[in-house]
Amino acid sequence: MSELSINTTQNVTINFTAASLGHRILAFGVDLLIIIAYLISVFTLMAYSGLSDTLSKMDGWSQMAVQSIVFLPVMFYSLIFETFFEGQSLGKKLLRIKVVKIEGYQASFGDYLIRWLFRLIDIVLSSGVIGLFAIIMNKKAQRLGDMAAGTSVISLRNNVNISSTILEEINEDYKPIYPLVIKLSDNDARIIKEHFIRAKAGNDYELLANITSKIEAVTGIKNQSGNHQDFINTVMKDYNYYTQSM
């Protein structure tokens, strides 16, 4: 697996491990098996319930309408799961890989939609050859859909539990200050904490300022303390307070 080093607009370098080609293929295979299992289940149910006979007696347009409804979950499978599971289909979740923005932050629905649309070129029309070739040739392991959406697929295997890397000790009577921290994702919080630790260890004031700017840009929070270190520390504690309370 190759290292993916990203330089953000705030001049913060973020290091990821790009998901290997093997893991991406396996994840796709798992998703394909799930889709096949779904189709077998639906058609078996239709056969045993007599719906197949009813369908055969319908006119052509009605048959097409029913078939379209049956195939909708298949068509939108990746888009639905990546949207609601923050960049992971069931196959990606099993293989512990996920889609993120190339800046290292959570991708949006628009990004997942672009990736889904490009599946027609990357996978469907070319039987996966174009997507495979693009991933191999691209330094950031991106298929065409990733390039268009500004995303990449990363491995989470170095993080046995993402939450454990962002955990902060907070007292039972802790009073949060910034409720807007819930706009951050676990991946955002992990990146912030990693760079916060590095900045504190190296007394890097510029990096602390960059982290503060990124938090403010993503969440809309304004630093009320005037001290970057205190602000970031409070944000991390508030994030843990809200996410542990959900």
Rank of each mutant, 00 (worst) to 15 (best):
M1Q: 08
S2V: 07
E3Y: 15
I6M: 13
T9R: 09
Q10K: 14
G22H: 02
G22R: 02
V30I: 14
L32F: 14
L33V: 10
I35V: 13
S52R: 08
L55G: 05
S56R: 12
M64N: 13
F71T: 02
P73L: 11
F76Q: 00
I80P: 00
L94K: 03
K98N: 07
V100I: 12
Q106V: 04
S108A: 08
W116D: 05
L120D: 02
I130A: 09
K139T: 07
K140A: 03
G145F: 03
D146V: 02
A149Q: 01
V160P: 00
N161V: 13
T165P: 01
T165G: 00
E168L: 08
D173Y: 12
Y174P: 00
L180Y: 09
V181S: 05
I182F: 14
A189V: 04
R190F: 08
H195A: 07
F196S: 06
A199K: 08
N203Y: 13
Y205V: 15
L207M: 14
L207Q: 11
A209G: 09
S213F: 12
A217Q: 11
A217C: 04
T219A: 09
N227G: 05
Q229E: 14
I232Y: 01
T234S: 10
T234Y: 08
V235P: 10
M236Q: 12
Y241I: 05
Y242V: 02
